[in-house]
């Protein structure tokens, strides 16, 4: 078992434990969170609106963003090791780098994200792309 899969199991167990209780955290401020989301490079891997990049933060039922405690736990436990090769995996955000109040501001901001994309069927360009995929091959085209 790899280190990261071990971490994942520990994490999921904890997430489940957190899942029951009421939130003990005070709510963060999404406006401050927006700045922090940029400053700490979250946008770099999740897009400015949480819709692009390494992992969507919208339209998921991830337990990680269901509760602030879980989110905080997730930030602290990630990637707590020095990479031997460069990595674009989700970094660790230690309390020193990103204290709880600020992290909660980011959490509040993330919670404002909405999937604003239209359905595929209502995007004309996507219809054209699909039609193009169905067209028979012609040599030289």
């Amino acid at each position: 078992m790899t280190l990261s899969s071990k971490l994942a199991i520990v994490f999921l167990a904890l997430a489940a434990a957190f899942a029951g209780g009421a939130s003990a955290q005070t709510a963060g401020d999404p406006a401050r969170g927006k700045t922090l989301y940029f400053d700490h490079g979250c946008y770099g891997c999740h897009g400015y609106q949480g819709q692009t990049g390494a992992r969507n933060l919208v339209g998921t039922n991830s337990p990680i963003i269901a509760k602030p405690e879980v989110f905080l736990f997730f930030l602290r436990q990630r990637g707590n090791f020095l990479p031997m090769i460069p990595s674009t995996a989700m970094p660790r955000f230690s309390e020193k780098a990103l204290p709880d109040p600020q992290a909660l501001d980011i959490y509040a901001y993330i919670k404002t994200f909405k999937l604003d994309a239209p359905d595929v069927a209502s995007i004309p360009v996507m219809g054209q792309i699909e039609a193009s995929a169905a067209r028979a091959y012609q040599a030289g085209r």
């Binding site: 700490h40 770099g44 995996a89």
Partner: peptide, 22 residues
Amino acid sequence: HQELMFLTFMAGARGRGTDRAH
């Protein structure tokens, strides 16, 4: 940007300054 992501991960792993990776 590729490098910004690498650097953010690196700072995170060392537990500091993720807001300075830019």
